[in-house]
């Protein structure tokens, strides 16, 4: 069946590849090769052809990276591209390196055949590298679907999930999926860059990733807190007051946990942190 899946992925028969790989993925026969093939089948469904993505990546103009994501990975409600990207992320996060021991707080979907880890260091190099591309897809799909891009790929409408309540009320999972994709994009790049996977192309991509890291992730925890005032993590607990050590620790846990796209419903601080990051996305795009 593995050869059939590979053949289907080669010819672009995404439905056949997805049908066969899903059966193996959701069974006791799953392993890292099956997980990767399942992620590839979902990527195929999301319209990803990796060589074309690489061509697009090399032509990115960094000032509007988010707009470029939306351009390269368009999506509309009902096309299942975004949903495919989420599931691919789940599969990639379950590709654990040999000998990994996953702490309780880092586990993802532990009751399934494919338990994962929020820590990129627990995962294989190939999953981190492919996760980098899939994260771009999820970000682009989300922004394209909910940000109403302008003809020149600027932001047409703010993303609405800018408070804890709105994040937790988002039953589609798009808000938390977007935030986890940013984290996984950054993680995927950092790990892959360390292993030399990006080669000479890495410096250009690094500028983009560093920018997102500084302006979204760190901003989600700090800048949005002080400037925006309302929705960042520790201000949620103590408005106008310097955060306590406990609050800072809880925010750090939230930051680590948000690699999992279902984390926003786990704790309130996770949702607050996500809302802060989405506020920053609105500011940045």
């Amino acid at each position: 069946m593995i050869i059939d899946i590979e053949n289907a992925l080669t010819s672009g028969n995404c439905s056949s590849a997805l049908g066969n790989s899903k059966r193996l993925y959701q069974s006791r026969y799953t392993d890292n090769r099956i997980r990767m093939l399942y992620a590839n089948s979902l990527a195929c469904k999301a319209g990803i052809r990796l060589y074309e993505v690489i061509d697009e990546l090399t032509s990115f103009s960094s000032p509007n990276a988010l707009g470029q994501f939306a351009r390269v990975f368009p999506s509309a409600v009902g096309d299942q591209r975004l949903e495919s990207g989420w599931l691919a992320q789940d599969a990639l996060q379950s590709m654990l390196a040999s000998g990994s021991v996953i702490g309780v707080h880092d586990q993802i979907l532990p009751e399934t055949w494919n338990p994962g880890s929020t820590l990129a260091t627990d995962r294989t190099d190939s999953s981190n590298l492919y996760g980098f591309f899939m994260s771009m897809s999820v970000i682009g799909n989300t922004l394209s679907r909910y940000g109403a891009p302008t003809p020149v790929w600027g932001k047409g409408a703010d993303l609405i999930w800018t408070s804890r309540a709105l994040v937790q009320a988002d039953l589609t999972g798009s808000a938390c999926g977007l935030v986890s994709a940013f984290f996984n994009l950054i993680d995927g790049f950092r790990r892959s860059e360390a292993s030399g996977a990006f080669g000479s192309a890495g410096s250009g991509v690094k500028v983009m990733v560093d920018g997102l890291d500084a302006q979204l992730v760190q901003g989600g925890a700090l800048a949005c807190l002080t400037s925006g005032g309302t929705y960042a993590c520790h201000q949620y607990y103590s408005p106008g007051v310097a955060p306590s050590a406990t609050t800072i620790a809880r925010c750090a846990l939230a930051k680590a946990r948000l690699r999992y796209r279902g984390a926003c419903s786990e704790t309130e601080e996770n949702a607050v942190f996500a809302a802060g990051m989405i506020s920053c996305v609105n500011n940045l795009w």
Partner: peptide
Amino acid sequence: EQLNQANP
């Protein structure tokens, strides 16, 4: 032989 358009 090159396989798999989504992840060559």
